[in-house]
């Protein structure tokens, strides 16, 4: 039982990084960006290739971050310069990344067993593997949440948030919305790829198929976080994503324990997300909204 929660906690922290990336496109930019399915694998592929060819794992992980950023840049350019719809731009980059990821790895999967990785330092300090993952995962998540909280409070960050909200208004304020979208996609996919690199080192292998369905896992975590942990201010919102990702892992661990076949997990996740996204509509159907006059206009 404790083992299960501990495992879910460690995985959840790593997936939280990816979840934060999905949140940036899905909630902040209002774009469903499918690039992430490719960039999470890209991160894993780069890290695995780097580590298996003897590179310092931290350096390999850093390169993975940059790789993801480049993928985000590609999608951003396709969308803003070539005017391809965002969803399709993401799909194009995702498909292109499939080939690129195979090139990077040279084969469909790389095993990292018994190789030094980013967690080794913590294991050498006497932590058991799961705790090593939790330690590094928690540290990374904390740094990322603080950095993003700061960034989205800056002038540039505010402009990016506004772009996802009302691009007309943003252009009228002299901001290049295309640049804002590109920056958002770069940050998002950088984080997703970083997450992929850390996940690969945690599971000791990278696999060409590991990204399939990751967008749905990310969305599920975003939604669980919002529903269970609220969305009062921006800092709490970022933290709620972390809790959401961990909760998702705990739920998955339990349904597996209850006997669900692991092959059915993605179906389960997809149905969960579909229901969660439909919740507002279901609520209205079961309990039609009362028309209230003057709501929120106390002073007018």
């Amino acid at each position: 039982m404790v083992e299960v929660v501990k495992g879910a906690l460690s995985l959840g922290l790593l997936w939280a990084i990816m979840t934060i990336g999905v949140y940036i496109t899905y909630r902040i930019l209002s774009i469903a960006d499918l690039t992430v399915e490719g960039s999470i694998t890209l991160g894993a592929a780069i890290a695995a290739h780097a580590i298996s060819s003897g590179m310092n794992p931290y350096l390999g992980t850093l390169i993975a971050l940059f790789g993801g950023m480049a993928a985000g840049l590609c999608t951003g350019l396709l969308h803003t310069k070539l005017k391809i719809p965002a969803l399709l731009s993401g799909i194009l980059t995702m498909i292109a990344l499939y080939s690129i990821n195979l090139r990077v790895m040279g084969k469909a999967n790389i095993s990292l067993l018994r190789m030094e990785n980013v967690y080794t330092v913590f294991e050498n300090m006497g932590l058991e593997p799961t705790w090593a993952t939790i330690t590094l995962g928690a540290m990374s998540v904390l740094v990322i949440v603080c950095l993003l909280y700061w960034f989205f409070g800056t002038e540039l960050g505010c402009a990016i948030r506004a772009t996802g909200n009302n691009p007309y208004m943003v252009r009228a304020q002299g901001i290049n919305t295309n640049t804002m979208i590109i920056i958002g996609l770069i940050i998002s996919n950088g984080l997703v790829s970083l997450g992929g690199a850390l996940i690969a080192q945690n599971q000791n292998f990278s696999d060409i198929g590991m990204g399939t369905g990751s967008i749905v896992i990310g969305l599920a975590s975003v939604i669980i976080g919002e529903v269970l942990f609220g969305k009062r201010n921006f800092f709490m919102r970022l933290l709620s994503l972390v809790f959401g990702a961990i909760t998702y892992r705990i739920i998955i661990a339990f349904v597996l324990k209850l006997g669900m076949h692991s092959n059915d997990l993605k179906l389960f996740t997809a149905i969960t997300v579909a229901i969660a996204l439909a919740l507002p509509m279901i609520k209205d159907f079961v309990n039609p909204p009362k028309i209230s006059i003057g709501e929120g206009e106390q002073d007018a």
Binding site: L156, G157, C158, Q173, G174
Partner: peptide
């Protein structure tokens, strides 16, 4: 900040 470059100063 209309018409000015947006930087990393606090918003």
């Amino acid at each position: 900040r209309r018409g000015k470059a947006r930087g990393l100063r606090w918003g």
